[in-house]
Structures are given as structure tokens and as C-alpha cells.
Amino acid sequence: MTWDIFVALLAATVLAGTPLLYATMGELITERSGVLNLGVEGMMIMGAFFAFIVEYKTGNPWLATLAAGLGAACIGFLHGVVCLVFQGNQTVSGLALTIFGVGLSDYLGAPFIGQKTVGFQSFDIPLLSDIPVLGPVFFQHDPLVYLSFVLPWVVMWFFRRTSLGLALCAAGEAPEAVRAAGLNPVRMRWLGICAGAFFVGVGGAYLSLCATHLWTHNLTAGKGWIAVALVIFAFWRPRRALLGAYLFGGIMALQLRMQALGTAIPSSLMMMLPYALTILALLVSSARGKGRSAPAALGENIAPGA
């Protein structure tokens, strides 16, 4: 493999990792507040649809991105209604949300399939983009990619340095303690669900506005499920989520380039590679004792009227 191909591989890694990064970060926020939402796939594709439809009507990609986030948050809101208000099981509610979201996006989006979007165009960041290797890998993309670079640090700062972020994490670890401190843990979980869904939706927007520049069915093609797995891979830490998203995106990109260079490995085995390596990477890090357990109250509802 020559140097040029290697640099191109890294750039492709960043592009493939970006939607995963947004979705993973969203799910991570939700899970840190103690809510497991397996509906990422459904919210993500609805985000992609809202982004497309607003871009299609207004031509403004920023507005479209905002709409994608808010639209996905509305779908996530259903999860909140079922789990936070009506005490439904989070695992199943999330699954139902995925089935619902994928169906709804197909139903509403059917008349628009194949329609193109202008979306975001990539632009080079002055000076930075001229740095060898780092330039083409990180600084010759579109705005949503640049925004994703700072996202993990912003989320980390939010979790550690703001009282709201601390309360949100506490709602995931010990909701009773939050209540004892005079705050409402259910409200923190609402925040976790809606803010998380917002970023998942932006991940969807990336797909329709940047990656493909069009609307079609099956646009997410299972990326939401990968995000669910990557949150656990990241041990619920924002910066590790960045690593996970790029690792997964990188293996996907590598797999395609290995085929392009001519390999005798059957394509079915190549397709297993990212999933098998994800498990392997997890095993290695937990064997080295770097694992961190899930938020203590993850998946458990807060009983009302307590």
C-alpha cells in the first residue's frame, strides 16, 4: 500500500466515522442519563428525512440540520413518553421506535426517493488544510465534519463542568440521590433523551446532506445499530466514542480498499471484519482493565409517585 493510498484511507475513515460519531454521541448522552434507547436507527433515518425535506423546501442546509435534530428529538420524545411517563420497558420501546421510525420515513419519504439535495459542500480550512497528511485527513471536509471534531470535548465539558451535566449523569447513576439534592431526575432523563436524539438526528442529516446528497429509503443501512454498540465500546466516555467511531469507519474503509487492491479473501468474510474486530477491541481493552461499567441505573425506570 503506497503512502497516498494510506492518507486517502485515513481521510475516508474520518468521513465514514462522522455519522457514527454523531449517533454514538447522542446515544451516549441518553444512556448517561440512565435511559437505554435502542431506537437510534429509527431516529437517525427520521433525522435524515427531516434534513432532506427542509433542505428541499428552503434550500438552507443549516436550517435542515436543525430540523433534523429537532425532528429526531420528537421521535425520541415518544420514547420518553413510553418510558418516563408510562414506565414502559426501555429495551422494547427502543426496538419499537426503530421499527416505527424506519416505517414512517419510508412512508412519508416515498414520493421523494431519488431527489437530490445541495446540502453542505466541503471547503478547505485555510493554512490547516495545507499541512501534509493532517490537512487532507482532517481539514478538507464539510462543516458538519468540522463540528464533529469538537463535539466529544464539548460533551465531556458538559458532563464534568456544568451542574446540569453533573445532574444528568447523576440521574443515570443514582436517581434517588438527585431527588435528595432537590432536583427532578425524570427531568434530567427528558433532557438526556431529547438532547441525545438531537445529535442522532444530526448524524442522519449528515447522511442526506453531506455523504450522499440525496434522499432515499434505507439511507442509514444499520448505522444506528452500530452506534448502540459503539457506546458500550466507548465505555460511555465521549472521547473514546470518537476513537470507536473512527475505528469502525476505518475498518469499513480499509475493507473496501483491500478489495480494490485485489484480495483473495471471500467478500462475506470481509463483511464480518468490522464486527469481529469491534468485539476483539473490546476484549483487549477490558482484559487490560480499562473497562468502565455502565451507568448504574441504566435501563431502570424511575418509579413515579415514590
Binding site: A12, T216, L219, L256, Q259, A260
Partner: peptide, 17 residues
Amino acid sequence: WYSPDDEKKAAEGLLDV
């Protein structure tokens, strides 16, 4: 058979080599 994103990425992989 049909995944615009994956198909585009595959083409980019080929163009890279």
C-alpha cells in the same frame, strides 16, 4: 443491491487506489 452511501464509499475506495 441498494445503499447509496455504501456504494459511493466503495467507488471512492476504488478511486483512491
